[in-house]
């Protein structure tokens, strides 16, 4: 019994240990580490939508951006409390996903992928046109947050930002872990594997997918709100196709349909990005392009499948690698 629980909680303990160690090991890179944590939240939202519910989307940035702008505007005009801002971001992301989902969930395959990209482009265009409210291409500036829970001030080095993002990422992770084990989460997996059968046993497939898309949108909105509050700036880039594509690459790199896969994929991708991209975005495109093709051809189920495969190989069993 103890063993079972030990192995169940080991990854969670390990992740907390890594987060604490990273804080002390890289005290001058806290901004970068915080960005990893925010991306983890975004990729987790994508894992729910794409990994569990099987909704192929290349437009998760739409909800991320909506959450970022909503939280930024809320902080400037209404109330600069961070936690309230997170809720507003989540609501904005969920509302956009619920609205777009009404149309999107009716489509499949290529059409669905294209429409998710289109929704993000519409959002970007609206934010660009509504210059008076959003600052247009200059971005939304002047976000000043109050202390987290009224206790911890945001500081220049980003210590508060780091722990704040870590706490939010951990809460999201736990919520998702509960959600995917719930009957709702199981029905999403069922729909992913065979929509026809789920329909036949009476599951409302369209509305389940819609609910998953809305929930994923809410979590992406939280990620957006985090970035608005911590970097104190929201730009049109939050809606960009590149962000959606990168989030998808991180997820598949780590392995879909497993929450830890999303975390591992994000950390590795961001680290490679940090070291390889340097100043030249085009060289970065070479690296990312080659990396993506390598994952598709050699690690189709993601990095998370690597340890068991290696273990089988090391044991030298007859079915090694299969």
């Amino acid at each position: 019994m103890l063993r079972r629980y030990g192995s169940q909680y080991a990854p969670a303990v390990l992740m907390i240990a890594v987060a604490v160690a990273a804080f002390f090991a890289f005290p001058f890179n806290l901004a970068f580490l915080t960005r990893i944590l925010i991306m983890i939240v975004l990729v987790l939202s994508l894992d729910l939508v794409l990994g569990y519910a099987g909704i192929a989307t290349l437009g998760q940035a739409a909800m991320y951006g909506a959450g970022a702008y909503a939280a930024g505007l809320f902080a400037i005009h209404v109330w600069a409390d961070p936690v309230a801002g997170l809720l507003i971001g989540a609501l904005a992301g969920a509302a956009l996903a619920a609205l777009a989902g009404l149309a999107l969930m009716r489509t499949h395959g290529l059409t669905l992928i294209m429409l998710t990209i289109a929704v993000a482009q519409i959002c970007s265009e609206i934010a660009n046109r509504a210059r008076d409210i959003t600052g247009g291409a200059d971005g939304l500036r002047g976000i000043r947050m109050q202390p987290v829970l009224g206790i911890w001030e945001f500081d220049f080095i980003g210590r508060t930002g780091y722990w704040y993002a870590f706490a939010v990422a951990a809460v999201v992770m736990v919520l998702l872990a509960v959600l995917v084990r719930s009957p709702f989460g199981l029905s999403l997996r069922g729909i992913h594997q065979s929509p026809e059968r789920m329909l036949a046993i009476g599951a409302p497939v369209y509305w389940r997918r819609h609910a998953a898309y809305t929930l994923g949108g809410g979590i992406a909105g939280i990620a957006g709100a985090l970035t608005a509050q911590i970097t104190q700036l929201v730009s049109l880039e939050t809606f960009s196709f590149a962000l959606s594509a990168e989030a998808m690459i991180m997820l598949i790199l780590g392995g879909t349909g497993r929450l830890y896969g999303a975390v591992i994929g994000t950390v590795i991708f961001m680290w490679v990005h940090h070291t390889a991209a340097a100043n030249d975005p085009f060289n970065w495109l070479f690296v990312i392009g080659a990396m993506v093709l390598a994952v598709v051809f050699f690690l189709p189920t993601g990095l998370i499948s690597l340890p068991p495969a290696l273990k089988r190989l090391a044991k030298g069993g007859r079915h090694a690698g299969s």
Partner: peptide, 13 residues
């Protein structure tokens, strides 16, 4: 999904 990813990778290249 793999097709989307592979062709995005190719586009980037």
């Amino acid at each position: 999904l793999q097709q989307v990813l592979a062709t995005i990778g190719l586009t980037f290249l």
